[in-house]
């Protein structure tokens, strides 16, 4: 269709501006998920295995943080990064990096809380064996994370799915600047308010496609894990 300005038309035509939007969305959410995994998996595993004062409070905190609205996280990061804020000197506000920071804060509790649950269940099963083998604490954590790897991949995909589909935090700290911080979700929010529904719907369909692919991947990993671990 000549002159087709819907997202599908642009996508089929390989429109560079739209591809840049999709690419930035994926780059931001994948980076945030990777960072959140690096922080959240060891944190969740450590909380699962250790007994310390305030542990129950920590678990409630992590679980509660899973439900914090993205806009509140966006506002918090905005205040931290704004010129007069404590981290203002880095000049990160309205950059992709700021969006990664916001999404990392959002996804880390999800990954930490789900990891804690997974690792704690596995620990209940492994505790006697590993203790009898005189395995040290760090080695225990590494063992449990490795043996729970199939469940943890599902956890990561859940975190990525949440990051890729949220708009509240990145629109605040990114500013939805065309060609710089515009992602699929922020573009949908903008185009909808502008009344350009066809572009918004097209981007929405692309986003749904990505989410479906993620869940298909999660399913495949899960089946592979079941086939392996029984």
């Amino acid at each position: 269709m000549p002159g087709d300005t819907s997202a599908f038309g642009l996508l089929l035509a390989g429109d560079p501006a739209l591809l840049a939007i999709v690419r930035l969305s994926l780059a931001v959410s994948l980076s945030a998920t990777a960072l959140a995994a690096v922080i959240g998996i060891p944190l969740g595993a450590a909380v699962a295995l250790t007994r310390f004062r305030g542990r129950e409070g920590m678990i409630v905190f992590l679980n509660a943080m899973m439900g914090v609205p993205p806009v509140v996280i966006g506002l918090t990061v905005f205040l931290l990064l704004s010129r007069s804020g404590p981290l203002g000197s880095f000049g990160l506000l309205f950059t992709p990096q700021a969006m990664i920071v916001a999404q990392t804060i959002m996804v880390t509790p999800i990954i930490a809380a789900l990891t804690r649950q997974t690792v704690e269940d596995l620990w209940a099963e492994y505790r006697d064996e590993l203790t009898a083998m005189n395995v040290g604490p760090l080695r225990k954590i590494a063992t449990l994370v490795w043996d729970a790897r199939f469940s943890l991949v599902t956890t990561l995909l859940a975190g990525f799915g949440r990051a890729a589909s949220e708009v509240g935090s990145i629109i605040i700290v990114g500013g939805n600047i065309e060609g710089f911080t515009r992602t699929m979700t922020t573009a949908i929010a903008l185009e909808t308010s502008k009344g350009d529904l066809s572009l918004a719907i097209g981007l929405g369909i692309v986003l749904i496609g990505i989410v479906v692919i993620i869940n298909a991947l999660a399913w495949v990993v899960r089946r592979a894990g079941e086939a392996y671990a029984g």
């Binding site: 099963e125 492994y126 006697d128 064996e129």
Partner: peptide, 8 residues
């Protein structure tokens, strides 16, 4: 143990 845990 009576019910040994198999590592995955």
């Amino acid at each position: 143990f009576q019910k040994p845990a198999m590592l995955r």
